[in-house]
Nucleic acid binder design. Structure first.
Lengths: 162, 162
DNA sequence: GTGCAACTTGAAGTCGGCTTCAGGTCAAGC
DNA sequence: GCTTGACCTGAAGCCGACTTCAAGTTGCAC
């Protein structure tokens, strides 16, 4: 019932099947995202399940998580047993919130943009996108936000060239 | 009808109102995203319309465009006159495609994740997310994609710890 | 048992998008 | 007219996510 040699992938095989470069996989291992055993000659051997783990990481990246965040998420899954329904739900919910927020932002942007196309943006004073400016506060190097509307500024004439 | 001094912003004022650091604004100028006049003493003075331009840039970044792409988009708008309906539509359409693609990817991800929560992911063999692995080809350093399904691999037992 | 592709390591390089720093200049309120 | 905070420049530094390089080792097919 142990792992036959067939169950282990070299880093090259994992790279080929995951679509990532071997250098990226070594990087992921250094970051604690994936793990490997070593042969007597010190070469990495990955369990096939690592493919899933890599897919998880890539998917998470696509929804905007940093590798550090992914690592944190993966660390919440138990190492010594299969993840339970609860374990998994906790991780999944984090993602869903993130995904929902992303989608919401994109749709807002899209609505604004559609409005702009409709109006031709020749009269910018009422344009949501163009007026999504000014007074956007920030602290540190995190995400910035853009506030819509700027009651302090009245209508402005449109200068040439935006 | 020329620009009164009131119409020009110092870099500090632009920074405060846009929520960006002055260093970022100088960077944007070097990248050709915004432009300024200079005082006799060589200090930058920005037209108020630069606030809109900055907002445009930030918005574009939020939907995933690089500054280089934003510059390309802005370059398609005329410098010498107000953008026409056509000018603007061309730029806006580029964005909409981009936004739609992003939303689509996120919703796909969400659907998969929802399925996972439903099944508890205790039986991973049929899980879309987990099986969104393997054979994801790539070329260069652009976006990777994840293919769903992997007919070559049969069901696998769930190893402990993912 | 040998040849060669695939592997190993640490260090350095790359890229985008900035920030920080050093050393100097400008503008405006008193 | 002086002080002081805002501004200038170029160069360097930083972060995440990798890639590239150099120099050496392993594993497997023949």
């Amino acid at each position: 019932m142990g792992l036959s040699r067939h169950d282990l992938l070299t880093i090259g095989q994992l790279a080929e099947r995951s679509g990532l470069a071997t250098s990226a996989l070594r990087y992921y291992e250094r970051m604690g995202l994936i793990h490997s055993e070593r042969t007597t000659g010190n070469q990495r051997r990955f369990a096939r399940s690592t493919l899933r783990r890599v897919a998880f990481v890539r998917a998470a990246q696509q929804v905007g998580l940093s590798l550090e965040e992914v690592r944190a998420a993966l660390d919440r899954l138990p190492v010594d047993r299969a993840p339970s329904h609860e374990d998994w739900n906790a991780v999944a919910r984090t993602w869903q919130v993130r995904i929902d927020r992303q989608i919401e932002e994109l749709e807002l942007m899209k609505r604004k943009l559609t409005g702009c196309i409709g109006c031709g943006c020749l009269s910018l004073t009422r344009c949501g996108l163009y007026n999504a400016e000014d007074r956007a506060g920030r602290a540190g190097s995190g995400a910035r936000y853009l506030r819509t509307g700027d009651p302090a500024d009245g209508p402005e004439p449109l200068p040439a060239g935006l």
